[in-house]
Design a protein around this nucleic acid. Sequence first.
DNA 1: ACCGTCCCTGAATCATTGG
DNA 2: TCCAATGATTCAGGGACGG
Lengths: 406, 406
Amino acid sequence: MELNNVYCGDCYELMRQLDSDTIDAIYMDPPFFTQETQKLSSKEGVEYSFTDSWENMDDYVAYTKTRLQECKRVLKRTGSIFVHCDRNASHYLKIALDEIFGVTNFQSEIVWSYRRWSNSKKGLLNNHQIIFFYSKTKDFKFNTIYTDYSETTNVDQILQDRVRDEKGKSKYKVDENGQVVMGQAKKGVPLSDVWEIPYLNPKAKERVGYPTQKPIILLEQIIKLVTDEDDIVLDPFMGSGTTLVASKLLNRKYLGFDITNDAVELTLERLESIIKTDSFLLKKGKQAYQNLDDDCMAIIKSIDAVPVQRNGGIDGFLREHIDEGTVAIRIQREDENLSDTVGKLIKAARSKKCSYMVVIRTHYDFIDIFDYNDIPNNLLIIDRYDLQIKKIAEKTKKRSRKTAAV
Amino acid sequence: MELNNVYCGDCYELMRQLDSDTIDAIYMDPPFFTQETQKLSSKEGVEYSFTDSWENMDDYVAYTKTRLQECKRVLKRTGSIFVHCDRNASHYLKIALDEIFGVTNFQSEIVWSYRRWSNSKKGLLNNHQIIFFYSKTKDFKFNTIYTDYSETTNVDQILQDRVRDEKGKSKYKVDENGQVVMGQAKKGVPLSDVWEIPYLNPKAKERVGYPTQKPIILLEQIIKLVTDEDDIVLDPFMGSGTTLVASKLLNRKYLGFDITNDAVELTLERLESIIKTDSFLLKKGKQAYQNLDDDCMAIIKSIDAVPVQRNGGIDGFLREHIDEGTVAIRIQREDENLSDTVGKLIKAARSKKCSYMVVIRTHYDFIDIFDYNDIPNNLLIIDRYDLQIKKIAEKTKKRSRKTAAV
DNA sequence: ACCGTCCCTGAATCATTGG
DNA sequence: TCCAATGATTCAGGGACGG
């Protein structure tokens, strides 16, 4: 079996063909326990029925359990599994999971919460789903993701060191002069087990029409948590293939199974179309793209510019024109030296008839071969804030020396 | 047994003394399944141990199940039960609940989510608890609680009436003149099954020293959902008596049981003098604490800084220290001139012992009285990108003139 | 391996200060 | 005296450490 590919068949049979201890992460979204025959119709009107009408819960649990056992076998010692549960069967599945992976390897019950259309149901709106997170061993791979501090947290709490006095009371630490002591740099609050992620990604052309399709960011978060680049992600119940798409976007290796041919074809199409959408993806690998995309977006938004998604040279336009002329923006990519960035922007801006161009420099090239005399009048190069900030240390030292000399 | 009273004893024995079909709502927070003896000490140093050390899960489930059966018996036909679950036993309890109350009477899996102190745990922070909501029959009493619309919902969606056209498409209703018809005032979005309620804070006056004490508002919400005034609420595992306090506050009748005498005494005391902390956070919302608007936040994020909400001078600090020193950031506000901004930052940074300061200037003052000689060595002023960009027009003109002159 | 103890943490409150 | 700003404290979960 090949990595970065998709296979049609019962995931039990397919997993049996895999070697033990080879997979880094598994996301599993087993078919729901409905005592009806599931009929789905694809866009083209093809109708097919699942073989997922179980006689009773025991059959369903047995079916899933067999496959979970294979999941455990193929997982690496440092691997993890995420099981997305149907609310009618989650408790039975959790018991199976406890048996197979062990209670001590139960890591989290993740709550995926979202807002959705309300209905007239008597009772509470059903706005969450549960994902169980188990590791194979206690030495599982885990990358902490940090989030913002709460609004109620003040600077002192974040910055200051604390100690306990002889009575065990916690106090801010002070030095011999009675001055408070500042602690280490803080990164933020570790991610909690409640994830608020919109059900439908609003801007997403992401939707392909599969009923249980998950948002890509949900899968991205899972994959980021327990894998690094080039690690292998398996989805034994692939469906529309969101797991694989996310894996690919994050530059992980992937493997997907599904019993229906429609799912396999759909996934292949989706995976293919990502490649088509952005050649940069394919060339550079996803991690670079992903981070830069977020960073670029943050910068673009911070200057009130309109982001442009599908242009190799221009990242956005200023909302306001200058002297009635359009201002095109490009942010220097990780793998670009300044000449590349400037060249791309000039080329794109020329064909789009932009009056002004702005490059945001994100790093200094190791060898700076850029000829500053080449800059046209209507092009401005700005250092990203952090580049400017890094100079502050030097500036301070220089000034101090000067002062000392005087 | 008297209403609005509290009894000491095993709730199984006590419930058996109650008539069938008499209780409107039950909140049950059974002792957790920990295979240790639970020792608790109240504020006054009274120490007592629970009898909740079960040999195994089966014993625990059997114990709880017996009591759940009695709960069902005493509930009215229109009654409901809320079971607050230990995360290690919730799946076993849910199976018991399904058996006793029936799958069709399972209403909701309520997620109580909150933020709390973090720890150094490898894995996700544990920031939610599960409460199962079952009704005795399908004719359960239910009062819909309405919440605010999501920020993304527009006014039209809320106010305008909608109809379906001949093709079944949903449209805004129009009158004979083609004017849109405004509908009834909508009440809001029905409450979802994910409840964000602050965890009972360590400093809250509401605290009585009971380790598992729940916030009163959590219980109030439950009670409001399924009872009206003068209905009867029962809590068979009363603990510190929060359920009864909430019932009393909402003019419901109540009945509480606990096996320990301490709990009974504590509850009686609490009922005498009810202290309810008005959560400022809940009442005023997060906005009340927020200094940073979206624009500032975007800038802070774009430089990989940690945002700080509760400080008048500092908006954030760099995640990475420079020369082991903290770098404080402030973004100039619309209504501030540069002197104000710099002054506020310097003052705050001094008291917080920050090594470096960065001001992001967002506009030029109409009258610039700022003395640039006042800038300390460790302070850097950076123009926001758009300010730098605006200079491009001038620059271009100047250069053009120069070129022309040559 | 198994205790007990200590340490670190950040949310949300209470407490204090300053105008 | 009041209110806003912000300083300071407590709690419990889990890791680390020591015996």
